[in-house]
Design a protein around this nucleic acid. Sequence first.
DNA 1: CTGAAAGCGCTTACAG
DNA 2: CTGAAAGCGCTTACAG
Lengths: 351, 351
Amino acid sequence: MSDEAPAHPKSRGAARRAQRRGPTMEDVAEIAGVSRGTVSRVLNGANHVSSASLEAVREAMRQTGYVVNESARSLVTRRSGAVAFVLSEPPDRLFEDPVLGGLMRTCTALLGAQGRGLMLMLAGNADERERVLHFARGGHVDGVLLVSMHDGDPLAAALHETGVPVVICGRVPAAGPLMPYVAADDRGGARLMTQYLLDRGARRLATVAGPPDTPGGAERLAGFRDVLGEAVPDGAIARAESYSIEAGRAAMDRLLHGYPDLDAVFVASDLLAVGALQALHAAGRSVPGDVLVGGFDDSAIASATMPPLTTIRQPLAQVAAELVEVLVQLIAGRHPSSRVLPTTLVRRESA
Amino acid sequence: MSDEAPAHPKSRGAARRAQRRGPTMEDVAEIAGVSRGTVSRVLNGANHVSSASLEAVREAMRQTGYVVNESARSLVTRRSGAVAFVLSEPPDRLFEDPVLGGLMRTCTALLGAQGRGLMLMLAGNADERERVLHFARGGHVDGVLLVSMHDGDPLAAALHETGVPVVICGRVPAAGPLMPYVAADDRGGARLMTQYLLDRGARRLATVAGPPDTPGGAERLAGFRDVLGEAVPDGAIARAESYSIEAGRAAMDRLLHGYPDLDAVFVASDLLAVGALQALHAAGRSVPGDVLVGGFDDSAIASATMPPLTTIRQPLAQVAAELVEVLVQLIAGRHPSSRVLPTTLVRRESA
DNA sequence: CTGAAAGCGCTTACAG
DNA sequence: CTGAAAGCGCTTACAG
């Protein structure tokens, strides 16, 4: 019944392959006059390969324009070569703050330089979180960079359970399993700024703090308090609703009401500080004449405000570098340490 | 010599598999009492599967926590399920402008909802561009979203040659192969704003244009000229060096020198407008009292300036949606049309 | 509706 | 140093 079978089964000839995607390892091997195994060896380090074979294979690759099929490779090595960059954050105004974007950009460049891809994933709702977990379990990524903005993020624990390497950026998980993290020293930076404002002669300090349950919210406020102790009057602390310009303006307005004779304010992010500057200006207070203003982040906007913002620099490039380093070590089966990176004061004109 | 061979070769038993990654299709099939083919069918649409088998398979999947191995699937289907989001842009201040971030965010969400991943790739230098091409050729991604900021981007043509589906965001390739694009109507938006400023009584209009060879640079300036015709005096056009606040400030300063009695200015992006507002303020001109100011983008910052910015809204969510739609159609082998999306005027207080 | 079988393109011990 | 062979975990005609 099958004596008229189509001619193609089993014929692994070039003709058939021509209409498929590019050349395979088989083609390269044939042209180079070696076996597939040898081609594979030159692809993976080229150890134990005679220079003659090596040259022949390289030439054959050039000639055919060979490019390895990553799916086939992944299937056997069980590694995808990709890493997920997971943003666990209310998604609406996500990139208003340039800090995140810069972090992502640097991680992408660093990962790319070692041949790894960065898969961007959102985890703003249950569906998205489930997708992230599914991805991790499916071996679609070799590891995940979790940029968690909230205390005790449940995603961190869930990811940990899948067994994929995870490194957390910016926040020590309050409870739950131990995972390595990379963070800037928020608290130390806040102390630095508060002390600086004091040194500049301020006596009635106030602060615009970030939303609770965010690194900037908790740690930077703690640093402020570390320096001032019990000396912080009611009304000298205003909590911003989010990390936006408007929220900064509103918080500053509250401060101006609750603590009208303030002479300095430490604002927990540069974006918030832009709003604070506006509120101060609208209230007729000059900066730094009447009020000193200190920000946090040293993001692109800090040098663009009027006056330019004195702020605390987060070493973003270093954060990205260590994030990638820690994750790569984790993927390699090692047990890297967590990292806390020093922050520094950048003096401009607002304080 | 090999009579003491290790016990494991060929034994495809559960014991051996236990120490590997999760359960395979084989395991599910065994538990469900069907063949691997049937399991595959329920995974891929579940057509031609009896409800009994279907239920059995589903139950077995639940029980084992099965998740498909994407590498194996990709190997045979020749699709990765991922899409590259390629940023062809000077990388340093990339995310200062929130427009890009928003676009990326929305694309990620949209793609994710249909089970596709977004791979972020930079193409700021030759190495990175080569990597992008390699990726495309390697079948690592099913298509690419090219966010090109420059006229006649060579990457576009190179990508086109690899044969992977490409859709360009924001810019019609000036020459070279035809590729579908999705863009906001920059020129129309600029006309809208210019006309609006005229309608508000302005008589001496100036403009801060974006850098040449960028969509905002060429098209938005063209729209400005469309309305004003030959009536634009020398000194009424200042070109910003980049899309940053500082560049906007510098350009506005130049305008103030070259065309001191201007009574309105159309600024080619909101971020530039923030700088322009600062320069105007520093020069003692009130907005909108002395000078009307119109921006472009309606990015997050537009409502946060003082005064809030009257601007042209780019329908970013729609741009993202159409970008994804066009690419998905391309991947499916169809021939979608390019899209030019209408822009609208958003009135606030600066004009 | 369903099973058996081929095949996707690689890597990796195993023998030489 | 190198080839032959097994195997990674799926999908997809092909027969029934």
